[in-house]
Computed example of a mutant assay.
Amino acid sequence: MDWLEIHRGTAPLIISLPHTGSDIPDELVGGFVSPWLATKDADWWVDKLYAFATDLGATTVRTRLSRSVIDVNRDPSGASLYPGQFTTGLCPRETFDGEPLYRMEGPDAHQIERRRRSYFEPYHVALRDEIARLRRQHDRIVVYDAHAIRSTVPSLFNGELPNLNIGTNDDLSCHPALTRAVEAACDAGAFTRVTNGRFRGGWITRHYGRPEIGIHAVQMELACRGYMDDPDKAPDPTTWPSAYDPQQAEPLRATLQAVLMACLTFAETPSPS
């Protein structure tokens, strides 16, 4: 499956990259209004931003497919992660800005099920396999779900999003000691931070986080302005996505390195009582 990328490390840390893809299968391209709209809400360049993680011994699991094809960070049952708030589904029909993604009505139940079996399930089989492999080697591991989003998306949140948004589903997906360690690493830098704010963790964080059996899951949602130019008004094909800026990204990368080191230190320390 050339759309599924797995790098196996030996450290007790898995980086999940569910939204960094922009590929669309040839047979589906014609159904979308445009390829730009179908990739507009990608977590742009997050895989580049975290490229250093493999040097730390981390395992990475990434899909190259656009989240508009299938969102592997949504509950496959269709249940909303944020009841009462706007969110996109397993096969989104509109962008974060409310623009229709499809020329017609979009995929029906049969087509959604086909995509779930073809793309959603293999991603999670891979993720489960890597979790099981590392748990056989370590008493506890951290599953770190890496995301990013534009700093201003009125349909999702008010105002400008903090730079660093930690999600642990109110500490249900990991031990509070890990939350505090990640917060400390974030607060040592020059970036704004919130924990369990608008983004409390997606389906991956909530589904796989089982601290009672040694699997601790954390989501990190970044504001894109930390590593690329982030438009202050509705983006269009001439302004979005902007290029990855290594110089702009360097301070954020340093903070993220500290965050991942905090995750590793937590995982390698005897379990707290």
Rank of each mutant, 00 (worst) to 15 (best):
D2R: 14
D2L: 14
T10E: 15
L17V: 03
V29R: 15
V33Y: 03
V33R: 10
S34I: 12
D41K: 08
W45V: 07
V46Q: 01
D47R: 11
T54K: 10
A58S: 08
T63Q: 02
T63A: 00
S68N: 14
S68R: 11
V69P: 03
R74Y: 11
P76T: 02
S80C: 04
T87W: 09
T88N: 07
P92T: 13
G98E: 00
G98W: 00
Y102E: 07
R103G: 02
P107R: 03
P107H: 05
A109P: 00
A109Y: 00
A109Q: 12
Q111E: 15
I112R: 13
E113N: 10
R114E: 15
R116G: 00
Y119M: 07
E121I: 14
Y123T: 07
H124N: 05
H124G: 02
R128Y: 10
D129F: 08
L134M: 01
L134Q: 02
Q137D: 10
D139N: 12
V143Y: 10
D145H: 05
A146P: 13
H147A: 03
A148V: 00
T152K: 15
G159K: 04
G159M: 01
L164Q: 07
N165C: 11
L172G: 05
S173P: 03
C174I: 07
A177L: 13
V182M: 01
A188S: 12
F191C: 11
I204E: 11
H207W: 03
H207K: 11
Y208S: 05
E212D: 15
H216Y: 00
H216W: 00
Q219A: 13
E221Y: 05
L222H: 12
L222I: 14
Y227P: 09
M228W: 01
D230A: 10
P231R: 05
P231T: 04
K233R: 15
K233A: 15
A234P: 09
P237Q: 06
W240Y: 04
W240G: 05
Y244V: 11
Q247V: 14
Q247P: 01
P251W: 05
L252Q: 03
R253D: 01
R253Y: 04
L256K: 03
L264S: 10
